[in-house]
Write a protein that binds this DNA or RNA. Structure first.
Lengths: 210, 210
DNA sequence: GTCCGTCGAATTGTCGACGATCTGTCAGAC
DNA sequence: GTCTGACAGATCGTCGACAATTCGACGGAC
């Protein structure tokens, strides 16, 4: 993932999709993107191919690209896969947590608790994402990490809907604290179990909402 | 995955990598591939980008592409991830196995047993791959299936070395039969457990061999 | 009113050429 | 003998033009 021109463009289009600037199923015409981002058509094409491989964009031969819309069934599938991968990462993280990592994790735990106490749902949601990222990092599992990053990007929109499900914050908080505590306790089994439990709930709620 | 020209080229280059025609770390110069496959440079470029996204090829900015070589550590990681995903698929397959699927699976079981009895290691290896493919199919889990396909391709070479580890066939056979029987018995827990057990062994052996 | 074939605009796919970047080599200074 | 800097070859990155395809609009036949 170098920082040259086409990577930047890929990132810019990805951001536009993730922030909802381009809505689901919207057509992404190469000429339009060329004008909008001031890049050449080759660069746009390359970016679209990359995003198609990431699963954010759908490319039909001779018919152009569009923002891929993810069905509820597929969102559930993604959460099921995430459960397996994040459980693996949580386990590894618990096994090999360094002392300074533990310090960071405790600080994050405090931040999460105070965000919830303050009723800051947006901040809470961001901190949870940070938590996921940290656990991936501590696990040092690059293969799982790479796949998880893709899956997160794909289901970003569904995540969002989930955050505001009524009464969700309380159980979500408890589950995340359980994950953190298991990792801090260096207990791999508990970390894996807590992660699975949490994502099992997420899958169930997603399926019910759909 | 349409069947137009550039997809075909992507597949052809992928096959060349998987069959060992292009060895690990070998440089893939665009001009050479252009001549060899009779395609234009754009097509070659696109194929390389796709393969890079699949993880089979490594592309360094301004320095070209080469066949990505996968370290033993990474091969172990891949098997760990596969364990999670294949366990999920085995579970789903066990949950929703159709009667005609069961029939096919029984036939495959017989074929596997007779391959081992006949000492046909190559045939056995192919049948095991077929088994994996079938379980993915029965699980109807497209997300997990797509990721597994990528991971299989990446670790194809290491798979190969594994098949000829001394005394491996016997335990491998027992483990695969256990997976098949659990799925046939429509027992999701057993199917997941048997799959994890098998891949846990594979990871251990890979790590030891490295 | 409906069906069918033709035509044209919009859009993607392909190509070859040009410019930019990297790598290795070689001469010269010290 | 070693180091430095310029040069040249190889290779990738970018661009604009042209060809191929799709899709909708239009008009005529029945």
């Amino acid at each position: 993932m170098a920082e040259d021109a086409h990577s930047t463009l890929t990132r810019r289009i990805r951001d536009a999709i993730l922030t909802g600037e381009f809505v689901a199923s919207q057509r992404l015409v190469e000429a339009d993107l060329t004008a909008r981002f001031g890049a050449s058509r080759s660069a746009v094409r390359l970016a679209l191919v990359n995003l198609a491989n990431e699963g954010l964009v759908e490319r039909l031969p001779n018919r152009g690209a569009r923002v891929r819309s993810i069905s509820v069934d597929e969102a559930v599938e993604i959460v099921e896969v995430r459960a397996g991968l994040e459980a693996l990462c949580a386990r590894k993280a618990a096994e090999q947590l360094g002392d300074e990592d533990a310090e960071e994790l405790r600080a994050l735990r405090d931040a999460i608790e105070s965000a919830v106490r303050g009723g800051d749902l947006i901040g809470y949601s961001e901190l949870i994402q940070e938590l996921d990222r940290r656990i991936r990092e501590y696990s040092e599992h690059v293969t799982a990490g790479r796949l998880l990053e893709q899956l997160h990007a794909q289901s970003a929109r569904h995540q969002f809907r989930l955050a505001f499900a009524p009464g969700r914050a309380a159980t979500s908080l408890a589950q995340h604290l359980a994950i953190i505590d298991a990792v801090l306790a260096r207990d791999p089994d508990a970390a894996e179990r807590a992660t699975r439990e949490h994502l099992g709930d997420v899958a169930a709620i997603l399926a019910a909402l759909g």
